[in-house]
Simulated assay, not measured.
Amino acid sequence: MIYSRNAFGPVPELSTVCVEHLDGEPLSYMTADAADSLKALTELAVVVPTTTRTIEQFNRIQLPGAPWRYAVTTNGGNILDNGRPDPHWRASLAADVRATSASLAEVGAELRSRTDDSFVLKYRVADNLFCYLVVNLEALPADFLAEWDAWCRPRGWSASQQGRKIYTMPISVCKSRTVAEVRRRLEDSGNLDPAARLLSAGDGALDAEMLRASDAAIRPRHGELEELAWTHPSLTITSAAGIRAGEEILDWFLRSSDRLVD
């Protein structure tokens, strides 16, 4: 939904709204039309922002239509309930990770043993759940991602690339699982009809399971899933790439939600 200046794509000058600042400087934007569409969407549907960002990174964003009853951060590792992390969900997920996966310490040590400053710009741990690299794409060895993912899989982890970031993630930490939990809570509280359809959008391999689990989904014509030519019978692909794809995705949500209301 949000884009840095470098990710706008080949578009003429746009009317944009800055929705994220870092150290006081503008960082991420939506088009003004996309911002209006997101506000309108919150009046038609239950909107649950869902992201791989950490809680701290998510809280930098000022999305139109907020506040949100629920948000999902850290690739499903955290549920924010009225802005507060749910400790019970996090503890349950952490126990499952411990039972099914190698430890973050083991995986992190192995990852650092395979990398060096020739292509890695940063190594980060996200909310003590997973780790990721920021890499120099021009210097990244062609076989690095495939070889690293092959090491991770038997140990209950996976590796994927999103632009300059290479994520190493426990397989049990996934957006679809956490979105299903949020849906259960909304149904139990009477805030969501059990017959309501689930609609989702995403552009990376970490989104694929969520898109597959949805009644209908959309992805932009850019990003990791575009590079993988990933598709699914219930998937729509935008015609635009870059920030215009964000507009198209929100228009698709609005049209789908209008049909639900009718």
Rank of each mutant, 00 (worst) to 15 (best):
V72F: 01
A142Q: 13
I2F: 15
T238G: 08
G9I: 00
D86E: 11
A146I: 02
R244Y: 00
R259A: 14
P67S: 04
S113D: 14
E20P: 04
A217P: 06
Y167A: 08
R197A: 12
Q162R: 12
P170K: 03
P10V: 09
P220A: 05
V120S: 05
T54L: 02
M169C: 11
D96G: 13
Y132G: 13
G190H: 14
G202S: 11
R221Y: 06
V134S: 11
G24A: 09
A40F: 09
E25S: 07
I61R: 07
V261P: 08
A40K: 10
V173R: 00
S200L: 00
S160P: 04
S101Q: 06
H21A: 08
C174I: 07
R185N: 11
Y70C: 03
H232C: 09
D215S: 13
R212H: 11
S257D: 11
S4K: 13
A241T: 04
D96F: 08
D33R: 09
V72Q: 01
A229I: 10
A105D: 10
G246V: 00
S101N: 08
R184N: 15
M1R: 05
G163Y: 07
A91V: 08
A66R: 06
P49M: 10
R5P: 07
E13D: 10
A105S: 11
R184C: 13
A201P: 00
T168C: 13
S239I: 09
R164T: 10
P10F: 12
E25I: 04
A142H: 13
R197I: 08
D127V: 04
P67L: 07
L186S: 12
W157S: 01
A109L: 12
D86W: 02
H88C: 09
A241M: 03
F8E: 09
C18D: 12
H232I: 00
T52E: 10
R112L: 15
Y70K: 01
K39I: 12
